[in-house]
Amino acid sequence: MNFANAFTPAKLQEAWEIFCNDFPLALWETLYVTILATLFAIVIGLPLGMILVAGEEGGILPMPKWLMKCLNVVINLLRSIPFLILIVMVIPLTRMIIGTSVGTVASIVPLVVAAFPFVARLVESSLREVNPNIIETAQSMGATPVQILLHVMLPEAVPSLINNFTLAITTIMGYTAMSGAIGGGGLGKIAIMIGYNRYRYAVLYLAVIVLVILVQMFQSLGTRLATKCDKRLKK
């Protein structure tokens, strides 16, 4: 490996060409995979997080203990499997849903499987931040458990949920780069396949820089949105 040779004018010229030709598609792939995977993860994780809080002993809608125990075990299990191994393990599931286990679209399945337990935990922590006195107040008004969840807990948790979903989207974007290593498309694939494997370090760095900029963008957007939504802050 010779880093000095990686940044000669010729190499940089080559990297620039790759950047212009291949990056737009890769960027698009990274974006849609990230956004779709996050959406699906929220669709599954949000109700699960609500059940984790409402269903526990002493919660607003206590559920059977064995059910809660199972739910917690499954979530912890999925959270503890390294993502690279998870990708391989869910191949049968991916085939079943998408029809193939390779390609950009197929990489969404392992991403969702890896992300929904994470999102469920994030939703859980957001809902636990809701002032318990406000929940008691809703009970004193004669609200049903479902009404408390929908009319009180979720609205009160919105700023915190936005912050946590931002965290989820940036984490999932990191995962997409990993799935790029084994057949998924996107910036991860460019960085590994075209950059690292073929000694084009300039390409590798360019891909990383674009990823960093993307994460920064999502993060500052999310933070701004959460602050704007939070009516606790006097304006």
């Binding site: 002032n131 406000i134 008691e136 008004m141 004669g142 609205p155 009160e156």
Partner: peptide
């Protein structure tokens, strides 16, 4: 019955996001 017996609190307990 809780519509007939309502309550106010020391901490007011209003929804802050509404």
């Amino acid at each position: 019955v809780r519509h007939r017996i309502t309550m106010i609190f020391q901490g007011f307990n209003l929804l802050m996001q509404r």
